[in-house]
Write a protein that binds this DNA or RNA. Structure first.
Length: 467
RNA sequence: GCUCCCUUCGUCUAGUGGCCCAGGACAUCGCCCUCUCACGGCGAGUACACGAGUUCGAAUCUCGUAGGGAGCACCA
């Protein structure tokens, strides 16, 4: 086999901020990045963007890593395992950033800004009202040394702003959107160091990607217009530019960004409901990406079917019915033992084998457990209709027949057929409804054998009484 | 407001000027299987946002319109 483009080493990363649960949308970009690295035999790096000390929590970081491992998204370098570019938590990379800040400041490519948050807000407001883009007005850009000294003396702590060069064209090729072109004069000077000395996102994110040797940054569409800023920073520092790819956002059924009201949105929630990693991954593989094969894939074979050039630009709507489909496909490929472990309730093997095709999530098994040894919930409309249509005489006959045959459905229906003249659906459906409380489900004969004769008799009799 | 992005069946999507009066998958519906339903098998319907242009020919190229989204933060 000759060397192809794919065999070039691709280094990707996932750079979450530990401020909450792992969202399905983030999991998807992490997954794509992971696939790309694996596909090419490259490396996948996990970097924690915890420069926001207020919102970042160690607990979230640990959860994030746990969910990723659960999904099977393993990383080659990261905060827990280290690597050549350590540390992998931005909170620990302050020294690196400070060196670069100094370099930019020395070259006049960044300057201290003493404007207060209130000043800036007011300025933005005024610009908006004047119908202009809310950009930094450049107040502190040309301060003299004396003016700076005066502000320092007043105890003002400056931020550091990147001095955006004048009319410059910033171009790059986005892996998913194609050639992009921006004009620097549309961009205001932006903050790269906060007044507490920590690095702002635009800066540390770009600089770390470059320093860690990332070759392909895959992230959400919302960063597309941020990219020229980051490119200018890297250019000013003389640092290598990574390639960028901006994938369409994941949205809810109504087209709005995925949120709580759409139901589960975090990997944790899907895991807790009993979704399987392979199901989630199979779905994600086709959400905003087209695999070359439609069928189910196991996690190991997915990288070979990932195609960066087939990443989608349009926002993708999350539709749980498709996830459910992959869940079924995954379940079909599991052994009874695996399903039993997944159900986690110590069910008997014959029970598991019987209901496995009627269960998509663990919660779906509960009604069948109740059918076998428990109380049936109140009947639904369809069930009531079927039972009413058969009438009490039918159930009286059924109960009588049951006393002769016990749990042998074949014998039972044979006798009932003779006595009532019913056959087919008219014969089976009332029995199913009365015995299981539902008009659909696993095969009735084995189900009947699993329940105690007393239970079955009682259920049949309960419909034999009143009219 | 300005800049940028997006728009093919209900949903995920294939499609880069003729192979497309548009293909696949999910969902839906129907049929078959089963003395029953579900499971399974088979099949059907449904889409190029709109309007102009370029061209012998456009889902594909150009322009405009509409709708949706993002960014312009001491949040990432």
């Amino acid at each position: 086999m000759s060397a192809s483009k794919d065999s070039l080493t691709v280094i990707t990363r996932f750079a979450p901020s530990p401020t909450g649960a792992l969202h399905l949308g983030n999991a998807r970009t992490a997954f794509f990045s992971h696939l790309w690295a694996r596909k090419s035999g490259g490396r996948f790096i996990l970097r924690i963007e915890d420069t926001d000390a207020e919102r970042s929590q160690l607990r979230f970081r640990d959860e994030l890593m746990a969910e990723m491992r659960w999904l099977g998204l393993t990383w080659d370098e990261g905060p827990d395992i280290g690597g050549p570019s350590a540390p992998y938590s931005q909170a620990e990379r302050g020294e690196f950033y400070r060196t670069l800040f100094a370099q930019l400041a020395a070259n006049g490519e960044a300057y201290p800004c003493y404007c207060t948050a209130e000043d800036l807000e007011l300025s933005r407001k005024l610009q908006r009202m004047a119908g202009k883009p809310p950009r930094y007005a450049g107040t502190c850009r040309n301060l003299t040394g004396a003016q700076r000294g005066e502000r320092e003396a007043r105890g003002l702590r400056p931020t550091l702003r990147f001095a955006v060069p004048g009319d410059r064209i910033i171009e790059f090729i986005d892996v998913v959107h194609g050639p992009q072109r921006f004009v620097s004069s549309d961009i205001g000077d932006f903050i790269i160091r906060r007044d507490d000395g920590t690095s702002a996102f635009f800066f540390c994110n770009a600089v770390d990607d470059s320093a860690m040797g990332i070759t392909q940054v895959l992230r959400g569409d919302d960063h597309l217009t941020n990219t020229p800023r980051q490119l200018m920073v890297l250019d000013a520092l003389g640092m290598r530019r990574p390639g960028y790819g901006h994938v369409g956002l994941l949205v809810g059924a109504d087209g709005a960004p995925l949120s709580k009201r759409h139901g589960s949105t975090s990997v944790q929630e899907f895991r807790e409901r009993g979704f399987l990693p392979a199901a989630i991954l199979n779905h994600l593989l086709r959400l905003g990406h087209t695999s070359d094969i439609d069928g189910w894939l196991n996690t190991a074979e997915m990288p070979a079917h990932f195609r960066p050039e087939h990443l989608g630009r349009a926002p993708a709507r999350f539709d749980e019915s498709q996830l459910l489909h992959w869940q079924k496909e995954t379940l079909e490929r599991m052994s009874a033992g695996q399903i039993s472990a997944w159900l986690g309730s110590g069910d008997a093997a014959d029970f598991v084998e019987l209901v496995r095709h009627n269960v998509v999530l663990p919660a779906d098994a509960a009604p069948w457990r109740a059918v076998v040894d428990g109380e049936l919930p109140p009947l639904g409309q369809d069930e009531q209709r079927v039972i009413a249509a058969a009438g009490p005489e039918f159930f009286a006959a059924a109960a009588a027949a049951f006393d002769q045959t016990n749990s042998d459905l074949k014998e039972l229906t044979k006798i009932l057929k003779q006595r009532t003249g019913r056959k087919g659906a008219d014969l089976f459906m009332p029995l199913r409804a009365a015995l299981t409380g539902q008009v659909h489900g696993p095969e009735l004969a084995p189900l009947l054998k699993l329940m105690s004769p007393e239970t079955a008799r009682r259920r049949l009799r309960s419909h034999a009484q009143n009219t």
